[in-house]
Computed example of a mutant assay.
Amino acid sequence: MVHKVGVLSDTHLPRFKRLPEALWEHFADVEQIIHAGDLSVLSVLSELETIAPVVAVQGNVEYDEVVEALPIKREIQVGFCRIGIVHILGDSKYYARNALVEFPRARVVVFGHSHVPYNKEQDGLLLFNPGSATDRRRQPTCSIGMLYIDDEALSVRGEIIPLAS
């Protein structure tokens, strides 16, 4: 079985008025959604839950309601794959080291914060940042991500999906 998991981060609502419309199209057939923090308000989760079940962590720019409701980090299992989720993973040169310290048994670590998409395998660990769904900052476009977890092949692949400007 191949599991399809939608991934997003740094939505910063209500500063940005709404989630991008393209999200519903891209995430239409996912079995789960991961939000890697900086949602800012909890209503983002209920909106995403109209698509699929959501797992989220708090970021560093959150209203109190988010801080009170969500953990700083968490680990989930999708098929054979253990996925660690945290908002801030530190400096890019230390991503792999920090990921292994935080999630020593994970196959994938999903993170956000930088607004810079990142999709790299290092020593059997996939490090995955979808970028920001609403705030491109210095990137050419906003972006979201997709994880494809294949239980039969025991493989996982990440895809960064640029959104139209």
Rank of each mutant, 00 (worst) to 15 (best):
Q32L: 15
P117F: 08
K93I: 11
P162H: 07
L126N: 01
I76L: 15
V61F: 13
A153K: 15
A52F: 14
Y118V: 02
L154S: 14
V30C: 14
R105W: 06
P104K: 13
P140Q: 05
V109I: 10
A153E: 14
G124T: 03
P117A: 12
A133G: 15
E159G: 02
G158P: 00
S43R: 13
I149P: 00
A153Q: 14
Y94C: 04
R157Q: 15
L163H: 05
S114V: 08
V30G: 09
G90P: 02
Y148V: 00
E102T: 02
G90C: 08
L70D: 05
R137D: 02
V7L: 08
P71D: 11
L45V: 15
H113F: 12
L13C: 09
W24F: 13
H115M: 07
S132R: 03
K4V: 05
F103M: 10
L163A: 07
Q139C: 09
L147C: 03
P117R: 04
G124E: 06
Y63M: 14
Y148P: 00
R107H: 15
D10E: 10
A99S: 09
E68N: 12
V108C: 09
H12A: 05
A69D: 04
E31G: 14
L48D: 02
Y94W: 13
G145K: 08
V108R: 03
L39T: 02
I161R: 03
D64M: 10
L45Y: 02
V108P: 00
S132P: 01
I76E: 10
E75R: 07
D38K: 09
R97V: 12
A96L: 13
W24G: 03
A106W: 09
D91W: 09
G112R: 02
V7T: 03
K17L: 11
E75Y: 10
R138F: 12
L19W: 12
E121D: 05
R97N: 05
L70T: 09
Q122D: 14
L19H: 11
L89A: 08
L163Q: 06
R105G: 04
P117V: 04
D91F: 13
G145W: 11
A52R: 11
R137Y: 11
G124Q: 08
I88G: 01
P14D: 05
H26D: 05
K93E: 13
P104G: 10
C81K: 00
S143I: 02
T134Q: 11
I83C: 03
G158H: 06
E47N: 07
R105C: 03
V101E: 15
E159M: 10
A36W: 02
L45F: 03
A164H: 06
A96F: 14
S165W: 04
Y148L: 14
V5E: 00
D123P: 00
F128E: 00
E47R: 10
V67H: 06
L89Q: 07
Q77M: 12
R15C: 06
C81I: 01
S40N: 13
V110M: 10
R157K: 15
